[in-house]
Design a protein around this nucleic acid. Structure first.
Lengths: 145, 145
DNA sequence: CTGAAAGGTTGAGTTACTGAAGCAACCGTG
DNA sequence: CACGGTTGCTTCAGTAACTCAACCTTTCAG
């Protein structure tokens, strides 16, 4: 197996860069969450609830993990008063997890702090951000989110 | 951090997109690691060792975590024969962690599988990838990696 | 030589996760 | 309607990742 076509090198390069960006972003996300005494997983669940209450099952599917895992995370969020569990009137097996006022505030705050502290983005001008946005959009449409 | 103007919609949009990309990338990375019976943390350490042996302390700093954490991760990697701990002749307090043949193979394999499976990137043409690479490079230079 | 500092490990404790087992509510078939 | 299977969630091990404090060894400064 010899050298590979140039396109592969370019792809590899972009993948490595994205890995770096992902690591950086991830670290800052954890830090921002920790600053509000939330863990990353808890913050992710809270972020999911921004659009409204959601069955535990749906949370587990979105985060690609076992439902039993969500039980624990929601337990801790509930203990801190960030979410509530309500029975779904349509199907009493289902528990709808909803963010409380405090939960929504924490989540919104965290999101704002991310927008603000995102240093790497500051290196780009407005046109470049626009280009980046378009490229990212292209990459993410069709992906399972 | 300097004062910034009110968060503009464009920045917020890009941040949200990056969050999506990060989630996607992260999930696939974990899956690729799991397929080789490695955890994400173990894969990260192995990836770090691609350039050569490294003191535990340096690993901890790079991954932004406590040294005692690295002890456990390296323990498990060592148990599986993916790394070795060697005493540094220069400073006998230091333990140099080095990837074994098997460790390097596993790490290289994982990296290749990432290049290959990176579906989102397939949505972009070569020119666009080049543009993306340049933008990412700009964002990452100066960042602590 | 002595004491402070640095590298690593150990131990306790929390969180995040998986997988199996269990309970309760829902539903399709007879 | 009743019964058996499925679905949604919880509980219970068990592992990994992580933090923090305490500790040992080696290094180094005075």
């Amino acid at each position: 197996m010899e050298t590979q076509p140039a396109t592969d090198d370019l792809t590899r390069e972009v993948v490595d860069l994205m890995a770096g960006l992902v690591a950086l972003f991830h670290r800052e996300y954890e830090e921002a969450a920790a600053a509000r005494s939330l863990t990353g997983a808890q913050a992710k669940v809270l972020a999911l609830l921004r659009r409204g209450p959601m069955p535990m099952r749906h949370i587990a599917q979105t985060l690609s993990c076992e439902p039993s895992n969500i039980t624990g995370i929601v337990d801790r969020l509930e203990l801190r008063g960030f979410v509530t569990r309500e029975a779904d009137p349509q199907d009493r097996r289902v528990k709808l997890v909803a963010a409380t006022e405090a939960g929504q505030d924490a989540s919104a705050e965290l999101r704002e702090s991310l927008n603000f502290a995102r240093e790497p983005l500051a290196a780009l001008g407005e046109d470049e951000r626009r280009t980046l946005r378009d490229l990212l959009q292209r990459m993410l449409t069709g992906a399972t989110l």
